[in-house]
Simulated scan of single mutants.
Amino acid sequence: MVWLTGLAGSGKSTLAKELYIKLQSQALNVVYLDGDELRDVLGAYSYDKQGRISVAKKRADLARLLSRQGIITIVSTISMFDEIYAYNREHFPNYLEVYVSCDYDELIRRDQKQIYSKALKGELPNVVGVDIDYDEPKAHLRIDNTTLGGIDEKVKQILEKIQSTFQSTQGA
């Protein structure tokens, strides 16, 4: 189970998709769960903190179901709250948390979905990093994605961490 977390626009979905492609070339049992797509599937449209925590736990439960069946599961989602980190660590024996960080000014510059610009104007409530505080994770791996280049190197870091984490759990 690989859980990529970061603020909107940090590049977590881009990294997750590339990781999925790399892992899929090595194993047939890989699935990628995108946070936004899962919201639609689950019909979960509450964006306040409690709503976000609730949908994150549902995401985690689905990922756990898949993982128990031997499917390598990659999730990209904001869900940047201590409750979620603790929930995942408690429920996943083979869990790797990757924090995709990005400078706030760069997030605002990217802002493809106009999330930050609308939130800063008061037009969009419940935006993590603007009017909802987030808990910066103490992740197993932190990837600074302030610069978009080097995606292959960033995915390589994740793959190496997966390998070292898996080997250490197998040897224990």
Results as ranks from 00 to 15, higher is better:
43 G>W: 02
44 A>M: 07
44 A>E: 11
44 A>S: 13
45 Y>E: 01
46 S>L: 14
47 Y>D: 03
48 D>S: 05
49 K>S: 08
49 K>Q: 14
49 K>R: 15
51 G>T: 08
51 G>L: 05
52 R>G: 10
53 I>P: 14
53 I>T: 14
53 I>N: 13
55 V>I: 15
55 V>D: 14
56 A>S: 13
56 A>M: 08
57 K>L: 04
57 K>V: 04
57 K>Q: 11
58 K>C: 05
58 K>N: 09
59 R>G: 08
59 R>W: 05
59 R>P: 00
60 A>H: 07
60 A>C: 11
61 D>S: 05
61 D>K: 10
61 D>P: 01
62 L>E: 10
62 L>F: 13
63 A>V: 03
63 A>S: 07
64 R>H: 08
65 L>G: 06
65 L>A: 10
67 S>Y: 00
68 R>C: 13
68 R>A: 14
69 Q>F: 08
69 Q>V: 09
69 Q>S: 15
70 G>W: 02
71 I>F: 06
71 I>R: 02
72 I>M: 04
73 T>P: 00
73 T>C: 01
73 T>K: 00
74 I>S: 04
75 V>R: 01
76 S>C: 14
76 S>K: 14
77 T>G: 10
77 T>D: 14
78 I>V: 15
78 I>M: 09
80 M>F: 07
80 M>V: 11
81 F>Y: 11
81 F>T: 04
81 F>N: 04
82 D>P: 07
83 E>T: 07
85 Y>D: 10
85 Y>M: 11
85 Y>W: 14
86 A>T: 15
87 Y>N: 03
87 Y>E: 02
88 N>S: 08
89 R>I: 01
89 R>D: 00
89 R>G: 00
90 E>M: 06
90 E>R: 11
91 H>F: 04
92 F>W: 01
92 F>E: 01
94 N>M: 00
95 Y>T: 01
97 E>A: 01
98 V>T: 10
98 V>W: 06
99 Y>T: 03
99 Y>C: 01
100 V>C: 08
102 C>H: 13
103 D>G: 08
103 D>E: 15
104 Y>V: 12
105 D>W: 08
105 D>F: 06
105 D>Y: 09
106 E>H: 09
107 L>R: 12
107 L>F: 10
108 I>E: 13
109 R>Q: 09
109 R>P: 12
110 R>G: 12
110 R>H: 12
111 D>Q: 02
111 D>T: 04
112 Q>L: 07
113 K>A: 00
115 I>Y: 07
116 Y>A: 15
117 S>R: 15
117 S>C: 14
119 A>T: 07
120 L>V: 14
120 L>I: 15
120 L>N: 13
